[in-house]
Each structure stands twice: as C-alpha cells, then as structure tokens.
Design a protein around this nucleic acid. Sequence first.
DNA 1: GAGTGGTCTAGACCACGCA
DNA 2: GCGTGGTCTAGACCACTCT
Lengths: 239, 239
Amino acid sequence: MSEVIARIPHYQHLYETLRQQLLQGVYEIGSLLPSEKELQQAYNLTQPTVRQALSMLAEEGFIKKFQGKGSIVQPVPIGLGMLSIQPHHTDQLVDAAAIRTEIVQKPILKVFPADFLFVSAQPQRPYYYFERLRFVNNEVIFFEKIALPAEEVPQFHKLKLENKSLFDTLRKRYSIIVKRGEEKVWATLADEALSRMMQIKPNTPVLRLEKCIETNRPHLNIYSSLYACTDKYLLKGRF
Amino acid sequence: MSEVIARIPHYQHLYETLRQQLLQGVYEIGSLLPSEKELQQAYNLTQPTVRQALSMLAEEGFIKKFQGKGSIVQPVPIGLGMLSIQPHHTDQLVDAAAIRTEIVQKPILKVFPADFLFVSAQPQRPYYYFERLRFVNNEVIFFEKIALPAEEVPQFHKLKLENKSLFDTLRKRYSIIVKRGEEKVWATLADEALSRMMQIKPNTPVLRLEKCIETNRPHLNIYSSLYACTDKYLLKGRF
DNA sequence: GAGTGGTCTAGACCACGCA
DNA sequence: GCGTGGTCTAGACCACTCT
C-alpha cells in the first residue's frame, strides 16, 4: 500500500510514529493509547509486530501496559543518559530553552583521554573529544568532557553543538540511541583550577559523575566526565 | 512432557535458567551462548519464545547479540537500581562480603515520609520505612532511608535485612524485579547531625542521591534517600 | 460477554559473519 | 554456502478488566 523507501522495520516505523505523537502531546497523559487491535488495523500489521513497538515504548516509560485494560500514556520520560536540571525545593525542571551551552573545547581528534575513569576497549582508535559548560541564568551548572569514537560519527566536527542536546543531535543526525550505561559518582571539593573554570569559590562541594554510555551500535560507546555545581540546582536522571 | 506445576511462562523459565547459569559462570565471558536453534531444540520451544528470553538477557547486559554470529557472554552486570562500591584509583569493586550492613531503624509502618524528594502517588497507603548504615572496613560508606508500600510485601518486618542486598531479597522472596527509575543527585556538606551519624568530620563533602525505583509490579515503587561519604570510595551504578 | 493485553506455535524469508 | 540472528505472518488460546 504505502511505498517503503528505506529498509525500516515495520515495528520501528510504528514505534517512531507513536513516539513522535507522544512527544507532541497528541495523546493526553493518563488516557488510553489505541488498542493493539486498532493499531493492527490502522497500520495493517499483525499482533506481534504491534506488540514489539508498544513494548519498546513501555520499556522507555512512555506508556504503561495493563492487561485487560490497555496502554496508559505516561508523562514524557527523561531520555536515558541525559540529565535534567531542577532547582532544590521545587519539582519543576529547568526548561531546556533556559539552558545555555558553551563549547569550551571544540571537537578535536585524539586517542582516548587518559584521565577518564572508564577505559575504552580500543583506546587507540581516533576519538572526538570536546568540552562544554552549561549555564542557567549565566551561572555555571556543569562542566563536561566528552569522548566518542570518530569513525562512527563522520563530519561530527562540523556540527553546531551550542545550545543543543547532544543525544538529540546524535539521534537525528546518526540514528544513535542510548541503550544502557554505567556511571560512577562521588562528591568532592572544587580545587583552584576548577573553581576558576566554573566561576565558583574554591572548596565548594562539587558533584563528580563519570559515565560510559552504550548505544544501539555495537562498538559505539560515549564517555562523559562531568563536574557539577549543585548548590542551587540538582541533577535528575533515569535508570 | 515436563510437569509444569506453577504457571510460569516458557520464556521466563528459560530466562531464569540462563540467568542462573550466567551468574554461576557456566559460560565463559566472551564465549558464545548456545544458538537460538539449539535452545529451541533443547527446551522444545519456537524461535520467538527463545528470542524473548534472550532479549531480556541482552536488555540487562548479560549478553550482547550479534547478527550472523551469535550471543556473546558479557561480565555479570550490576543489578539495576543497585549500587556497587569501588575505591578511587582502582577499578576493583569492593566485594559484597566485605560490606557490613547495620539496620539503624527496623522496618516500621507509617505514611509516606515527608522528607523524601520524590513523592508517592498514594502517600496515605501504609509504608514500611527503615534506615541502614553500610560499612567497609568499619568505616561508614553510606546511610540510607528506604520506604516501600507495605501491602505489596507481607511479612517484610520479619525478614533479616542485615548484610543482605535488599534487591536480592525482594527478588527471591517476592519476585520483585527493578524495571526502571529516576534519581536526583547533588553534592553538599555534612551537617552536625549527619556527621555524628556517619562518624565523619562536619563539613565533609557528601553525596546525596534520592531515587524512585519502579518494579515489575504496577503499583510498587521503592523510594530511597541516600547520604554517601565518598572520600575513599565512589558509587557505581547502571542506567 | 466483550474487549483488552499476554503467551505461543509453525512456518517463511531476509541480512549478516565467517570460512 | 552455511549457520547465525532479525523480521513478519496468520492464526490460536489464555488471563484480566470492565460493565
């Protein structure tokens, strides 16, 4: 019926379609998604194919499935591996538009950084390495160092990275999706160099968060080393 | 053929069997799991059923699937929602046997704690609330406050909680499995009361980690509020 | 009882890796 | 070319919720 140009699996097409609709608020939170049977008819698919798409959405927290009832729409979940910023003592996230990102070190090619806690399986491969500061109201919230294998993201150095979510960019430009990851976290005090970089007083408590992020590509891991000043805002994430 | 006593789905039985084998090291890390076809024949199942079990294992990081090759066994992953402890500057986890857990406040019934950052959807339900300290080498590593809905875990107050992983206990005793969750994290300084509780100096930097943990049971969320002293050890988790 | 999601079968064909 | 995992169909029956 419909012309299929690229080789996209049916379940993935349905998943992407529903995901877009859920992001755009087409379905009200707490309401029921169309039933599996309705989706089968609407997209001309069989039950297992529809179920796979819905299972992916449930896995990511977009919907919750209830036997005998249907799939209930949940609030849009935080992206896996992404961090949201939230003031202490309220439960309102800082809007993405209020966050400013400044690229301190533009992407350069180098071997895997030696000061990361997680180690790459192939440290000699070329990696893109860059550093960024993120601000809310012109205050530095965090400083982050990032490395990702260059062969997997051609032309990465030409992308505009300011004021964008890295993971949204990777998703749209390269179809890279975060699957899973590990993190190491601890608290420490800002030393002289860090306090200059982050425009905070020395000996302020800072949060340290190092991550190794696995994606849907077998040999593509993203590495992040983060320093966060959390006196006004805390970090929120999903696992 | 084989007598099925309880109503356990085939895919789940296969999943549990393989998971046990993977935990016990039956398959060498980096080696291939038996192929889908072999598992079909061995357990007398069809391909989609076997695939579901393997997908669950892949989702949790026990194996990685490669088209045209097979499923490669990975190192045993950290349990979702669990935290491992690791010294700075080495990559060796502290063995679970070296960690001592002391229950400071035995499980009591109360309404949902007001000082947690995450809020329950049904705060008036009865919750089990308890507090624990965890030690490595007789040093306090963290202090944790935990709340979980009492109706979902009958007889919980009778369980021995010392020196056990809470999630292993919930899995074995109630078949409760962590599916997903959210965390809020920040760094702060220990105040007077906390420094006494954790036997550290006042104004030591401490890590704060609050979590809301969703499980395989629709209305069972576990809430945790954690204070960690991370000067010697850091915390490692999965997402 | 009607409608929902949950489990399962018995096939088919495709895409990929490796020798 | 063979064996692997990836996608998909067309059914079947079960378990649960709601009315």
